[in-house]
Amino acid sequence: MLLQKYPKEVKQILAKYPPEHKRSAVMPLLYLAQREEGYITKAAMQDIAQLLDISETDVASIVGFYTLYHDKKEGKYRMQVCTDLPCALRGAEEFLNNLCGNLGIKVGETTPDGLITLEAVTCLAACDRAPVFQTQGPDGIKYHENMTVDKTMELIEALKKSTGEAK
């Protein structure tokens, strides 16, 4: 239960919006629900629906619309590489291809250790620093700019270590 788990955050989120429009809190609450597992469970949707006095279908319909919400368990970190036009003009597609080769997975797949899911996404507003990707994980969303495959592999090693330690 979100309210029990993050009472302070939930209260803070609800305080942002007029009480008669508490439905507005659905997006921040979904981020909160996604924080730990990297995806939103059915129970969490139920929970949010109840908190905001809307239907579970309403909540699910929002999860389905926005690409940063996920309803399935995938890698602990989602590595989202921009391959949109401006980045593609600066070698992003090649970068992604090489990364796939190095990781031994295809776009959309997860590394066998469950650490990284590799995705291609649309423009991240970092077109001048291509190749660029963001990681979406337990610690939020972070940008990684002017990347090379080597630097990326180092980052993955570091993530591996830190999650290993966390365990």
């Binding site: 809190a25 997006m27 981020y31 929002i62 926005y66 940063l68 919400y69």
Partner: peptide, 27 residues
């Protein structure tokens, strides 16, 4: 002043879609 985060939808840059999104609906 409050911040409100979208969640991956270009259309939410369109002003009325953005308002819907703040209202907790599909953008």
């Amino acid at each position: 002043i409050y911040t409100h985060l979208g969640a991956g939808a270009y259309i939410c840059g369109e002003e009325t879609a953005m308002l819907e999104s703040i209202e907790g609906k599909r953008g």
